[in-house]
Design a protein around this nucleic acid. Structure first.
Lengths: 359, 359
DNA sequence: CTTAAGTTTGCATAGGTATGCAAGTTTTCG
DNA sequence: CGAAAACTTGCATACCTATGCAAACTTAAG
């Protein structure tokens, strides 16, 4: 037996097993039509009252907004998006958010900046090697106005898919040649060279590179720049892999130092690994930084300046990379015919106490 | 003079100043109707083919999905939300994402877990003291199915607003008495007691509490538990404020130790402050941890176990707090009449090297 | 007071999907 | 083979807002 009582905002359903369930009907959403009725105007006028550019008599608009406010009306963004063909949502795909403190900062800045520009953020947090082919369709399904991908690798098939949808795509610290995606990267090759030169100039004889994940462009490029300098100076450099995390870097650092011909300088592809290496050399090997081994990182996360680490590192210009990325994406949202931008931004060597300066 | 040429996917507009602008029309979205035409079925059937529960002949569905796939059709989630009254979006409001490594982890776990449950995440990253009264309306405007707020304080007016909209609200490490929000918190009072008892049992004579932000319930509750134990044992405890960040904690720790009657134990309201205090005591004061001063933190962030810190701390059961929160929110989305849950989950004291154990 | 210009409003429709209902089709089984 | 049951499909409508167009109204100018 079913008993229903609509129109007064809830309904009873009596089940045969004598259980009484009170099923609060989802509070009927208040629509622009109800506001219109209360104000004695048409729905159009209510709608226009909510877009500042639309022409509505000042008095009318005030009255309508007053009523709307009183009964708690708010436009339905879904319906609006449907008709305007603009969702005002951007998708952000981010990885490494737990493993590298650099990325929470990036995420925070990105999300704030989009917010300031009136864009909502739909977030996907992924593993570094997670396949984005499942993620992008979800974003496109929600008609996002644009997509920003941080530190995760995208198949060029998916980049093409975005292009087909006409959804602009911006990459942060990644690039896809021959796609029509924009990208904004720290100049990783130059950063690597900076560090290499620093080691050479300060008289280090057996430097090493500690790689992140070997399939990431960031690690590859930092290594490339570093090794270029080594070759140019006829210096042989060792290499180990630390997978961009503390523990692996800790172990790798031990391997680099615990050998007949220990290294005297390690360039780590990010700060977290540099800190791991530093801890390993001090705690596990009982050696001194920078006296026995110089250590230089990459990113300049806040931790790098803490007294216990005092890490020399290559600072990524986060703020300007974020500004550039967001501005690019938003401008390409507003002007779809705009071509993608590619910008490589110089990092800055921040010299602290973890590296020797003189010979 | 304006010249327009629609129907062939772009239009020219010639401005009086002779500037030629080519305005690529946004690629027309492919709709279910087009798929229907190609498949020789009605739009209804196409729609049904995309909901596994809806009855469609197997052969028909295969053909439709094949065509859809070929021409790159994907349902429009906005339109779907409009009619189903379900957006499949949850709002997450998070703060401290850059200042406390605990929260990136929380965010990552939350976002993954929602994802697994088929919910998209709309993210707002805020400052701890930022007013959420501007944020919530934006979420409600997008018809989010539910809202989860982490470590940020919500006015009870806004909590009521959610209730009025029928949008379930779950708080993570915060609570609002007398609201109909759910909340899931670590048992901060009990955690404080745990630490207090530990200091007493191991014979510390002059302990101190290093508060986070004094207007947060987490800091208040941890202090409360700690001080209860002190009072019960007739011990006087000092207090300083570190605002949940490294630098302030560093300075506060110096003040606690650099006095005629220095403290011999500091309970810090989170791990980041504990690390700041630890650095201060070692680097700035040249004293030993735990020989001169014991330090205990709260959270058990990954860094706490690094050799250079080796921090004793109260572990927050992140995973189960996240699981509980997400499950609660989703179940209240699916069953709106469900009452809110309130759960306080015990933390666990993880004893490492930064605190003395014996007398 | 008349007319033109400017301002404000309403009508009607579009945006893309989901779904109750009824009609149509196929299968089942006696 | 016939009737009932089960399955498939199409029709029509609803979800809520924005906006082009024309009508109604107001103001300015003569």
């Amino acid at each position: 037996m079913t008993f229903e009582c609509v129109n007064i905002h809830f309904s009873w359903i009596i089940f045969s097993d004598e259980t009484l369930r009170i099923n609060m009907k989802k509070k009927d959403k208040i629509t622009s039509i109800e506001v219109a009725q209360l104000a004695g105007v048409s729905q159009s006028t209510v709608s226009r009252s909510f877009s500042p550019e639309s022409p509505v008599a000042v008095k009318t608009r005030e009255r309508i907004l007053g009523i709307a406010n009183k009964i708690g009306y708010q436009p339905n963004a879904m319906a609006r998006s449907l008709i305007t063909q603009k969702s005002n949502i951007v998708g952000i795909v981010i990885s490494n958010v737990t493993t590298n403190p650099f990325y929470p900062e990036v995420l925070d800045l990105l999300s704030r900046k989009f917010q300031q520009n009136g864009q909502k953020v739909m977030l996907f947090s992924v593993h570094r090697d997670q396949n984005l082919d499942d993620i992008l369709p979800q974003l496109l399904e929600y008609q996002v106005d644009g997509i920003l991908i941080t530190a995760a690798t995208l198949s060029s098939a998916m980049a093409f898919e975005c292009q087909r949808w006409g959804t602009p795509l911006t990459l942060f610290n990644r690039y896809i040649p021959d796609s029509n995606a924009s990208w904004f990267c720290c100049d990783n090759v130059a950063g690597g060279r900076l560090v290499g030169q620093m080691f050479i100039d300060s008289g280090h004889k057996s430097p090493a590179f500690l790689a992140g994940n070997e399939d990431t462009s960031t690690s590859i490029d930092r290594e490339k720049g570093f090794m270029e300098i080594m070759v140019e100076n006829g210096v042989k450099a060792l290499k180990e892999v630390g997978n961009y995390n503390y523990n692996d870097a800790y172990a790798a650092a031990v391997r680099l130092v615990d050998r007949p011909d220990p290294v005297d300088a390690i360039f780590c592809a990010n700060d977290i690994m540099a800190i791991g290496a530093l801890d390993a050399i001090r705690s596990a090997m009982n050696m001194k930084v920078p006296e026995d081994v110089s250590i230089i990182g990459f990113d300049d996360i806040p931790m790098a300046s803490w007294p216990s680490f005092n890490l020399t590192t290559v600072r990524q210009p986060v703020q300007s990379m974020v500004d550039d990325s967001v501005e690019d994406l938003i401008s390409r949202i507003n002007t779809p015919e705009k071509p993608p931008n590619h910008k490589v931004i110089m990092g800055e060597l921040v010299i602290r106490g973890s590296s020797r300066i003189s010979i």
